[in-house]
Design a protein around this nucleic acid. Structure first.
Length: 868
RNA sequence: GCGGGCGUGAUGGAAUGGUAGACAUACCAGACUUAAAAUCUGUUGGGCCUUGUGCCCGUGUGGGUUCGACUCCCACCGCCCGCACCA
């Protein structure tokens, strides 16, 4: 008997697969194709357990599809542009390009030992000029097709560093490096016209049957289609009316003010000669640009002194307020406030002492609004107090429809459909991104670069010792001649949002070396992605942008019409988490930190210093720092992060146990869509189990082939049950359940006394069923047990239906829904017959106590319920 | 704040509306060993007594639908994710 040596067999089989070239994607008509894609990683330099889990899931699918006779495309690449490379250049010197490519080399080196079935010949990084040059070509085609345009938009501006900040670089309204108060600044920027496709992107969601319902719902809400009324409030001073948009026009009688955004043209006009307005707008601009910041900030308002006339009651005048919670981007940037039926408006009115007017009340409890707005579902029927269109009792929805019709007929308003989805701003004032291929000419305006001049390459000779975009202060790169008139001109110095890079990489994988963005022949063959796997954190933006891009690429002739929904099926996997260990020496905890860390009240008042798991040991009365009497806190699991010292490095796990153990563990303990907690004992257990399987194989190999066995039939049945269950598990992404079935079958096989032939058949089948998860171990067992060729390409085992069904079935007997007994009956037995037997059971007789049952429910093959 | 999700033993979790806790971890007991590790075997949701093929309770909390609810509906609590310049 030999021992299980993961490092030995893993290297051996990886070499064998590479030599046989079995993972090179082949385009041929004789087999169905299957395209499996895991979201490509950002090259941070280290792979983490989340990657291992994500790629193992994809690998299981890919290997299963190879075994079931498909041409499989399973590529890998690098989402390589972005801020971390520039941050690294600023922090430690060097060039983003060198940093990025070195990281890619490191990560590829860490990934290869995992034994993934990836076609590495298709690998690319988005920062390769060959890739971003094609992206520039796409941009030019989209520009021509009217899918890209320029307009002004607001950015976070750091006045000290003189640079644009990303939202994550703004902390508490201040720049993360300079600490300066961040200002809003308007710049002319490029936009993709994604909102022109709002309706299409929304309605096509219905066809995405193999996407998680929650993701479709999130996208639906994000696109945010609404039907409402748009109308003007006449200004008392006779100036141009203020247009408002509302989804609740039925509450118009309850209006107590008109609110406009601080960015509204009227607010800007007032600011010209009104210092109060200037100050108030400045105050509003201190709040960040994110929707979250705007929505959670304290509600502030300023009375402009202007008034408007109520459209239904000309005698009534409403004040016009500037309010910080009104977004210029949505609707018309102006609203009417109806405090009785909107909590935000109510808080605002109570704060500024504006009137609260009820327009409808609950049927059963008709009381006026106090400090809680009355906002029933639109489907609830309510009592109207004074509805101008004559409603008495009606639902909110009926009232909305009636009001829109009434306003349109009377001519003072229009029913309008609006979308929340905004156009996608793609300009970034940064170096490490895909250059936008246009030139600005004083005479010709914005001139697209000629396609034969692509790629517009990033210059290498840049430094990051000064704030701002290096492209902006690089004269020889920036200053060019106009492609149209030949006069001196300037290159666009903005680069593209990295979401652009990831919005079409899946298409590029079908022909990664083509000298056009895609190759129609290859794209037609491989698209769509049959299974896409990635985190739920990308549920909206990345996947919505990709859907937009696929449509844009179809319009510009780069993808076939069938590929406008590029991801046939989507799976969103959970994170890998790990417990966090810490001390409490050092600074004091804040109350918030206590809550966040779950620090018990009696544990002293000192701030945690995070500890690596191996610094901590468990004793009878709790956790301690190894070899000391200092206590440690163990907080429940959280996403692995360097700063919390709870990262488990896949490289060290692979060197300790092997890739198969890591792969087995990340799939075994939790359902794939949920987070999995990494535990040392769990990893250890996975390793032990693989050892057991190995030893079992050795034992079977050494059995006497002529010895008589017993229980062959039972083992055979269990084997076919395992084939059936594991196949189902893999097909339905129930990897943890499939692994549980593999455990059960392995335990059974371990105890089996069946003949050698049957056991050998069983262990070979077990190896095949395990192969997608632990391909190296499976390959080795397969070879030792006389399997033909590579297990990686061997056809997937088929379950024999006739061996799956037992003749007898155990049926639980319930009395009033509680299990009280069970009977064993032939599977095909008639209902009446089953009922007769069930009624004779002691427990039933006792419960009936001589009487007759009220009702007997017999679910054939399942359960009997006797109601007494 | 808005949108989405999740909540089951000591722990990770299983369960087409049909026997709640599969499978695994941890713990405990036993075998093997001079001993330990490793390995193997067995027990383990809580409670009660009359120790039985027994009874009661039990899937975040409260209500509802159903012969039957972890599963469906309503409300609440807690945690996680996203919110348009992080990737």
């Amino acid at each position: 008997m030999s021992r299980y040596s993961a490092s030995e067999i893993e290297a051996k089989w990886q070499e064998a697969w590479e030599k046989a070239g079995i993972f090179t994607a082949r385009q041929s008509g004789d087999r169905p194709k299957y395209y499996v894609l895991e979201m490509f990683p950002y090259p941070s330099g280290r792979i983490h357990m989340g990657h291992v889990r994500n790629y193992t899931m994809g690998d299981v699918i890919a290997r299963y599809k190879i075994a079931t006779g498909h041409n499989v495309l399973h590529p890998m690449g690098w989402d390589a542009f972005g801020m971390p490379a520039e941050n690294a250049a600023m922090a430690i010197g060097g060039h983003p390009k060198d940093w990025t490519y070195a990281n890619i080399a490191d990560m590829r080196g860490q990934m290869k030992p995992l034994g993934l079935s990836i076609d590495w010949s298709r690998e690319f990084a988005t920062c390769d000029p060959e890739y971003y040059g094609q992206q520039q070509a796409l941009f030019l085609d989209m520009l021509k097709a009217g899918l890209v345009y320029r307009k002004n938009a607001v950015v976070n501006w750091d006045p000290v560093d003189m640079t644009v900040l990303a939202n994550e670089q703004v902390e508490g309204g201040r720049g993360w490096r300079s600490g300066a108060l961040v200002e809003r600044r308007e710049l002319t920027q490029w936009f993709f016209n994604i909102s022109s496709m709002s309706e299409e992107l929304l309605s096509a969601l219905d066809g995405l049957e193999n996407w998680p319902a929650k993701v479709r719902l999130m996208q639906e809400n994000w696109i945010g289609k609404s039907r409402g009324l748009q109308f003007g409030f006449e200004r008392s001073d006779g100036a141009q009316a203020i247009d408002v948009y509302t989804t609740r026009p039925d509450t118009l009688m309850g209006a107590s003010f008109v609110g406009i955004s601080p960015d509204h043209p009227i607010a800007k006009a007032l600011a010209v000669d009104n210092p109060d307005v200037v100050a108030f707008i400045a105050e509003c601009n201190k709040v960040g640009t994110t929707e979250e910041a705007v929505e959670t900030a304290e509600k502030l308002g300023l009375d402009t002194g202007l008034t408007v006339k109520h459209p239904l009651n000309p005698d009534m005048e409403l004040p016009v307020w500037i309010a910080n919670f009104i977004l210029m981007d949505y609707g018309t940037g102006a609203i009417f406030g109806c405090p009785a039926h909107d909590q935000r408006d109510l808080d605002f009115c109570r704060k500024y002492d504006l009137p609260v007017i009820d327009t409808f009340v609950a049927l059963e409890d008709p009381k006026p609004v106090e400090n809680e707005a009355f906002v029933p579902p639109k489907t609830d029927r309510v009592q109207w107090i004074d509805h101008f269109a004559g409603l008495d009792i009606a639902t909110g929805q009926e009232a909305i429809d009636t009001t829109i019709a009434y306003a349109e007929k009377a001519g003072w308003g229009t029913g309008v459909t609006k979308f929340r989805l905004r156009d996608w701003g793609l300009s970034r004032q940064r170096y490490w991104g895909c250059p936008i291929p246009v030139v600005h000419c004083d005479d010709c305006g914005v001139v697209p670069e000629k396609k034969e001049n692509l790629p517009v390459r990033l210059p290498d000779d840049v430094t990051f010792d000064k704030p701002g975009n290096p492209l902006d202060r690089h004269p020889t790169w920036r200053d060019v001649t106009c492609p149209s008139c030949g006069k001196p001109a300037r290159r666009e110095t903005d680069t593209m949002d990295t979401f652009v890079d990831s919005s079409w990489y899946f298409a590029r994988f079908t022909a990664p070396h083509a000298d056009t963005p895609t190759d129609m022949d290859a794209a037609s063959y491989w698209m769509n992605v049959d299974q896409y796997i990635g985190g739920v954190e990308h549920a909206i933006l990345h996947r919505l942008y990709s859907r937009f891009f696929a449509r844009a690429m179809n319009i510009t002739g780069h993808l076939p019409a069938k590929a406008i929904e590029p991801f046939e099926a989507l799976f969103t996997q959970g994170m890998v988490t790990h417990a966090i260990y810490s001390t409490f020496d050092g600074e004091e905890f804040s109350a918030k930190e206590r809550k966040e860390l779950g620090v018990p009240d009696n544990w002293g008042a000192y701030k945690a210093e995070y500890l690596f798991p191996e610094q901590v040991e468990q004793r009878e009365d709790g956790y301690f720092i190894k070899g000391t009497n200092r206590r440690a806190v163990v907080t429940p699991s959280a996403k692995m992060s360097k700063s919390k010292k709870n990262v488990v490095d896949p490289v060290s796990i692979i060197s300790a146990y092997g890739a198969d153990t890591a792969r087995w563990f990340v799939l075994s303990d939790s359902p794939p869509e949920r987070d999995v907690e990494w535990t040392a004992s769990g990893a250890e257990a996975a390793f032990k189990h693989l050892n057991r399987v190995w030893l079992m194989s050795e034992r079977i190999a050494e059995m006497d082939p002529d010895a008589k066995g017993q229980g062959d039939e039972e083992l055979l049945r269990a084997m076919h049950k395992a084939i059936h269950d594991v196949t189902q598990g893999v097909e339905s992404f129930g990897f943890n359940a499939a692994i549980a079935k593999l455990y059960a079958f392995t335990n059974l096989l371990g105890k089996s006394k069946a003949s050698k032939a049957t056991q050998q058949n069983a262990i070979r089948t077990l190896a095949q069923l395990m192969a997608p998860v632990v391909p190296h171990l499976a390959e080795d067992i397969w070879a030792r047990q006389g399997g033909e060729g590579l297990i990686a390409t061997a056809p997937w085992p088929q379950a024999d239906e006739s061996l799956l069904i037992d003749d007898n079935v155990t049926m639980p007997i319930q009395i009033n829904g509680k299990r009280r007994a069970e009977i064993s009956v032939p599977r095909e037995m008639e209902r009446a017959e089953v009922e007769k037997i069930a009624l004779k059971v002691d427990a039933v007789q006792k419960a009936l106590n001589g009487g007759v049952p009220k009702k007997v429910i017999v679910v054939p093959g399942r359960i009997v319920n006797v109601v007494v």
